[in-house]
């Protein structure tokens, strides 16, 4: 899988490169409009991460060129200009996703994975780990082939973990990701514990071979069970 990063901020570019290389992708990068245009014209990529404000031009023009050439690359716009108009313009031009800065690398990696999966399987979007399979679109979870009923929040929590396997997930971050703006002023995380507890019980009962580990009391990590 080959990914092109078009981003002018060196520090951010380096971080994205590192995160994607860690995930096993082949990564190339471009720092300005001219370099980006050259790369896009000369090579094919599976996914392009595109910043909009570039030295020498607008990322939206690159997107337009790609579409004019009927290229099928997946494009994720990463931009600090988190305004509605930009988002709409980008998606109308055929971008697959829009990720406003500042974002977390795990979020970016999850989006890249999701976009690539969508491109590859033509709509079949399940995320798999161990004997568990999760379909974000239809919100169906199956463990060892049989369906497991999860409540809305349980599903959201599991999805968040499945998108970040083996990553430490801080409970505050999880709360913010799943409960959104509601949770940002809470200093009590009982509601997170409660969901995790229920989710663990359901995973256990269904015989899942993945588990949510607690890490030092402030976070969780989704890993394969080490029963065997």
């Amino acid at each position: 899988m080959k990914i092109l990063i078009i981003e002018d901020e060196p520090s951010l570019r380096e971080l994205i490169e590192r995160a994607l290389v860690n995930e096993g992708y082949v990564v190339e990068s471009a720092a300005d409009y001219i370099a980006a245009e050259t790369k896009v014209a000369g090579y094919n990529y599976d996914c392009i991460l595109l910043d909009i404000m570039l030295p020498g031009g607008s990322g939206l023009d690159i997107l337009k060129r790609l579409r004019d050439m009927s290229r099928r690359e997946n494009v994720i716009i990463i931009s600090a200009r988190d305004s509605v108009d930009d988002r709409v313009a980008g998606l109308e031009l055929g971008a697959d996703d829009y990720l406003p800065k500042p974002f977390h690398m795990s979020e970016l990696v999850a989006r890249v994975r999701s976009v690539l999966r969508r491109g590859k399987t033509g709509g079949q979007l399940t995320i798999d780990m161990g004997n568990i399979s999760l379909d974000p679109a239809s919100r169906i979870v199956t463990i060892a082939g049989s369906r497991v009923e999860l409540l809305k929040k349980e599903f959201d929590v599991l999805l968040y973990f499945m998108q970040r396997p083996n990553h430490l997930v801080d409970k505050v971050v999880l709360a913010e990701a799943v409960w959104g703006d509601y949770a940002d002023e809470s200093d009590n995380f009982h509601f997170v514990y409660a969901q995790i507890k229920n989710l663990r019980r359901k995973l256990d009962e269904a015989g899942a071979d993945i588990m949510i580990r607690s890490v030092y009391g402030f976070g969780y990590k989704l890993t394969l069970s080490d029963k065997e």
């Binding site: 901020e9 951010l12 971080l15 500042p102 795990s106 801080d170 976070g219």
Partner: peptide, 29 residues
């Protein structure tokens, strides 16, 4: 926004890829 994102992501990298001790991890979090 960008510098904040950069710092935050470097911290995330430290947490996930450098095997910090519990104490370090707590500070990072």
């Amino acid at each position: 926004q960008t510098p904040l994102a950069v710092i935050s992501n470097r911290v995330e990298h430290l947490i996930n890829y450098t095997n910090p001790t519990e104490q370090q991890l707590e500070e990072l979090v």
